[in-house]
Write a protein that binds this DNA or RNA. Structure first.
Lengths: 155, 155
DNA sequence: GATCCTATACTCGGATAGGCTATGTCCGAGTCACCAGGG
DNA sequence: CCCTGGTGACTCGGACATAGCCTATCCGAGTATAGGATC
């Protein structure tokens, strides 16, 4: 999985707390990551419609929906793509004993198992929203740090 | 995910049906894949202890355990490695508002969610054994093809 | 004092290089089976 | 007829190139703001 997913999730959490647009450069400084590369991830979030970009001075990124309506899966798929990790190449239809296409009416059992696992993974990520993450972060982070973060974003 | 996982699973299914050692070259011909690269995957299975290699004439690979005791997860981890897809870089401890290490007693919520999803994925793969795959393949494949496969392996 | 215009600085977006893992390939070391020769 | 030694071919195992994707970067197009001049 792409490492940018982690950054994207952290950014969503931060954006949820800030009521005003936050520039990509400020998010990068806050997380101490490459500004250029983070910009790429934010562009992916923008293409997926999760965040909205505002140009010009005092511009930046804002969430388009309430954090409670953005699942972790949304962010993961926006950055890593929605293609399943396993891709069946239909080995049954290859080689000297290739099963003809008309016989291949049922999906390959291996692909079925992999798809099932992939669905379980997605379901697990779909069950958690960014709002849940925000709540958890607020519970485990000192209040002082949170207010410092607010101040940092407004500066 | 590595594409070789699919080959490895197909090979385990085939090996389960053949009572005698099967050379890597024959498995590659049966599945119409690169012999050299399939050899690499089989070596990974061998290192993981899932299959046992026999050298010399009429040698090849054999399963070390009954197919009912080999889970799909075993094969996946043998080939792709057992490292989780998501790697937490502890963003909290970076940047100008870095939380000191002594405050970071609870794991990052994002990592927690990702680990949970990863566990769900693994659990789903652990619930299916190679024997289940063999059963399913036997149910959806013409009996003639199966006997042809037996003959092909013995030739 | 209010309004309009201009210049500025700041924003995002897409096009552009580099590094690393996954893919694909090759050849050598080791081993078992077979066969010929001898007892 | 049985045993033994040698030969041969076949097997796996690890070391070696290649390609595609992830990582990282840069500069240009566009825009909201701030300030100043004008009415």
């Amino acid at each position: 999985m792409s490492g940018g997913v982690e950054w994207g999730l952290h950014c969503c959490v931060v954006l949820s707390g800030a009521g005003e647009p936050v520039p990509a450069a400020k998010l990068a400084e806050l997380h101490d990551v490459s500004p250029s590369y983070l910009a790429k991830q934010l562009q992916l979030l923008s293409r997926a419609g999760l965040v909205r970009s505002t140009l010009g001075q005092s511009g930046g990124y804002v969430l388009t929906r309430p954090a409670s309506e953005i699942t972790v899966l949304d962010v993961v798929e926006a950055i890593d793509g929605a293609v399943p990790a396993f891709r069946c190449t239909e080995v049954r239809q290859r080689g000297p004993l290739a099963t003809p296409v008309e016989e291949c009416t049922t999906p390959c059992p291996i692909a079925r198992v992999m798809d099932s696992a992939d669905n379980a993974w997605r379901q697990s990520l779909r069950a958690v929203t960014v709002a849940d993450l925000v709540s958890e972060v607020g519970r485990t982070t000192p209040a002082e740090t949170l207010s410092l973060a607010r101040a940092f974003l407004r500066s």
